[in-house]
Measured scan of single mutants.
Amino acid sequence: MGSVRTNRYSIVSSEEDGMKLATMAVANGFGNGKSKVHTRQQCRSRFVKKDGHCNVQFINVGEKGQRYLADIFTTCVDIRWRWMLVIFCLAFVLSWLFFGCVFWLIALLHGDLDTDYKDDDDKSKVSKACVSEVNSFTAAFLFSIETQTTIGYGFRCVTDECPIAVFMVVFQSIVGCIIDAFIIGAVMAKMAKPKKRNETLVFSHNAVIAMRDGKLCLMWRVGNLRKSHLVEAHVRAQLLKSRITSEGEYIPLDQIDINVGFDSGIDRIFLVSPITIVHEIDEDSPLYDLSKQDIDNADFEIVVILEGMVEATAMTTQCRSSYLANEILWGHRYEPVLFEEKHYYKVDYSRFHKTYEVPNTPLCSARDLAEKKYILSNANSFCYENEVALTSKEEEEDSENGVPESTSTDSPPGIDLHNQASVPLEPRPLRRESEIGSRR
């Protein structure tokens, strides 16, 4: 089982795998120059863009038009607004034209077009017409509009002379109601789609790998820009990579689940303020055997998904993003964004995407760390350097704002901070800030 798991979770494809794949392509008759073999020097295209759209195009789909027309309502909801407006206008105009032609044909076959009612006051002739005051196609078209929109100006009306005319008036009224219901329903469904809710759900630009509770963890940050909550919010993550099976089958995008606390339930989050999602790199993680150097040379993509129900409509929305291997910062942490004021908490989104480097973060893999092949620094050293990194950030910001350097908390000259780390230190809580992250 261990060997199978290692093969499945191998992220960085070796040169031997690339040569094996190329040999397979030639042997199977696919070596026509169009096949692409992804190596370390040639990274694959992003499968999920940063804005959440999937970078996929469908080609050679059989009976595409028929399949889309069979699900016309979903098609109308998914198309762009400009095409929705075109369909909206065409549906009414074509129905008016169709029934206008029908009423014109009825008048033509009944002989109503030969009668001039402007110079004739004989009401008996008017009563013999199928539709009064309809003696041309324009008049028939206007009567069709008046019937379907129930305008009723009063000059044109159907008589009991022709039952077919009466039937067409009733039929057009029913068709008009159906068109109204369909168009209004599609427009309302399109307006109520929770897709735009994703514009106020954000992911951090970069993911980070750092120590948390004595273990290497992959972390990324999510935030909600609205005050309205995302009900039943939960997160998922998958690692996408290519691999070759033991039988020699090439899988271009193998999807591997990344555990973010599904078993323990901590994948469900209360997204009021930005939260750091934590994936513990343990023996079940696809990143277990990867060191910093392996991450730098790897070719994979981590897709992160945030799902929840919109509070206003109770409709489920899904926000997506992805991180390539070069977008994962090893040995970094996110800057705090949640600050405790006197009577409330304040979230500073200008710090949302910012990170700071944490010294002495192990550069080895989580496996080597678990097997004690890498000796961690003293816990006080880690905490102290973590505090120094934050303090230096604040000093830089104070210097930019014009604060005198004498007010900063610099260490005395001639003292090495790293050498001082081995000395037991008193706890130094942050002056006014605390970061709330997901705790395992």
Rank of each mutant, 00 (worst) to 15 (best):
D296T: 09
D114Q: 14
I79W: 05
L306W: 10
W83A: 03
K50Q: 14
D112H: 01
G214Q: 14
I251P: 15
K20S: 08
F382E: 04
T138C: 05
E400Q: 10
D263I: 07
T313W: 11
L338V: 13
T361K: 01
N28K: 06
L390Y: 09
G2R: 03
A22P: 08
V61A: 08
V26E: 14
G308Y: 05
V126Y: 05
G402D: 11
K34P: 14
A421G: 10
N7F: 04
C76E: 10
W81D: 03
V208W: 01
E327W: 02
C101N: 06
E280P: 10
D71M: 06
P412N: 14
V310L: 08
S350T: 11
D263N: 10
I295N: 01
S381M: 05
Q255G: 12
S10P: 12
S10R: 06
H205N: 10
E394W: 03
N360F: 08
F167V: 13
I179E: 05
T313R: 09
N224Y: 07
M309L: 07
A237D: 03
I277N: 00
S399M: 13
L97M: 06
D254K: 11
E327Y: 01
E400I: 07
F171D: 00
G261T: 13
Q148I: 02
D213A: 14
A186C: 10
T245C: 15
K393G: 15
A389E: 14
E426D: 11
K50D: 03
R82Y: 15
L376D: 15
M24G: 15
T23M: 03
K20I: 07
S291G: 09
I164R: 00
D368L: 11
I87T: 15
P359M: 10
Y250R: 14
T23C: 06
A22M: 05
V202Q: 11
S35M: 09
C319G: 04
Q238V: 13
K196E: 08
V126I: 13
D116K: 09
I87P: 02
G111D: 07
H229F: 10
N419G: 09
S322Y: 01
G29T: 10
V102P: 00
V4C: 05
G2H: 06
S14M: 14
V77Q: 05
I209Y: 00
P427E: 03
N297H: 13
E249P: 08
G31H: 10
M219N: 01
H229T: 10
R351P: 06
L90H: 14
M168F: 07
S264N: 08
E232N: 13
I256S: 09
E395D: 10
I305D: 06
C364L: 05
V93G: 02
F339I: 15
L240H: 10
C177W: 15
E15R: 06
P427A: 14
R221W: 00
V37L: 10
K342H: 03
L253G: 12
T23I: 03
F103M: 05
S45F: 07
P429S: 15
T23N: 11
P274H: 06
Y9H: 11
E311S: 08
A140Y: 02
L290G: 00
P252S: 14
P424G: 12
I436M: 06
A421M: 13
P404E: 10
D112R: 01
P424F: 13
N55L: 04
T149A: 09
K49G: 08
E146H: 03
Y349C: 13
E371H: 04
K64G: 10
E395R: 09
P194E: 06
D112S: 02
D122P: 00
I151T: 13
F73Q: 15
P427T: 12
I164S: 09
L225Y: 10
V358G: 00
H229W: 13
S127M: 15
F339R: 13
V170G: 03
L239Y: 10
N360C: 08
T149I: 02
I184T: 05
L324T: 09
A140R: 00
F99Y: 09
S264P: 04
V169H: 04
V222E: 00
D119H: 10
F300D: 00
K292R: 12
K393R: 14
T150R: 06
Q255I: 09
C319A: 10
V303T: 12
K196T: 07
L108N: 15
I415W: 07
F262V: 10
S95G: 09
T409E: 14
K64P: 05
G100H: 01
A233I: 09
I415V: 14
D180R: 10
S45Q: 14
Q41H: 07
I59N: 15
L363H: 11
L390Q: 15
H418R: 09
S273I: 03
S144F: 01
L69E: 09
F92E: 02
A366V: 00
A181Y: 15
F103Y: 08
N326L: 03
N326K: 06
S10F: 04
F171M: 06
F143H: 01
S35N: 06
Y344E: 06
G185T: 09
W83M: 06
A27R: 13
E16A: 08
S204E: 00
S377R: 09
S422M: 10
P163T: 06
A189N: 13
T355S: 04
D114W: 06
S35C: 07
E63Q: 14
M24C: 08
Q172V: 02
K373L: 10
D282P: 00
F300A: 00
Y153R: 07
S377P: 15
P194H: 03
N206Q: 12
L69G: 11
I179Q: 12
E433V: 11
P427H: 08
D122M: 02
F92H: 06
D121S: 14
W220K: 00
V202A: 09
R212K: 15
L109W: 15
V303W: 00
Y250A: 15
W96R: 00
E283W: 03
I256Y: 08
M219G: 01
I87V: 10
S10C: 07
L430K: 08
K354Y: 06
S377C: 09
S264C: 12
K49Q: 09
M84G: 05
N7L: 06
Y288A: 02
A192Y: 08
S321F: 14
T355G: 02
V231Q: 08
E283A: 13
T39Y: 05
R8F: 05
L417W: 06
T200N: 10
D71R: 15
D78V: 09
E335V: 05
P163M: 11
Y153S: 13
R197S: 11
S132T: 14
N224V: 04
S411T: 12
I87S: 15
C177I: 15
K196A: 09
F171H: 01
R156L: 01
Q420P: 13
N401E: 12
L376Q: 14
S291T: 10
P412H: 10
T313K: 07
R46Y: 02
K190C: 07
A165M: 03
K393M: 13
R428L: 09
R351Y: 13
V304E: 00
L85V: 12
E341W: 06
S273P: 07
T355Q: 01
D112E: 02
T245M: 14
S124P: 03
T138N: 04
R428G: 13
M19I: 13
G152M: 02
I87F: 15
V187Q: 05
I415E: 15
A129E: 04
I436G: 14
Y384H: 14
M19Q: 12
L113T: 06
E249G: 13
R221P: 00
A91V: 04
T115H: 06
L230Y: 07
S124H: 15
P362D: 00
E385D: 08
E146C: 02
W104I: 10
S411Q: 11
E395K: 03
G29P: 08
L113C: 03
C162P: 02
C43L: 08
I281V: 03
H353D: 09
M191P: 12
F182M: 04
N135Y: 12
R333V: 14
H418G: 13
K118P: 00
V93Y: 02
C130M: 03
I266S: 12
Y250M: 15
F30K: 15
D296M: 08
S406D: 11
W96C: 12
C162M: 00
P427I: 13
C54H: 13
L97K: 01
L324P: 02
R40A: 13
A192H: 06
A370Y: 05
M24W: 04
Q42P: 12
T316K: 06
H234A: 10
S35K: 13
Q172D: 01
G261W: 11
S124Y: 14
F203T: 03
I178Y: 11
G176K: 04
A189P: 08
V388L: 03
E397K: 07
I179D: 05
Y345N: 10
L329A: 05
L216F: 08
Y345G: 02
S377V: 08
E232V: 10
I87R: 15
R82T: 06
M309D: 06
L369Q: 02
R243H: 08
T6Y: 03
N60H: 10
R8D: 14
Q172A: 04
E249T: 12
I79E: 04
L329D: 02
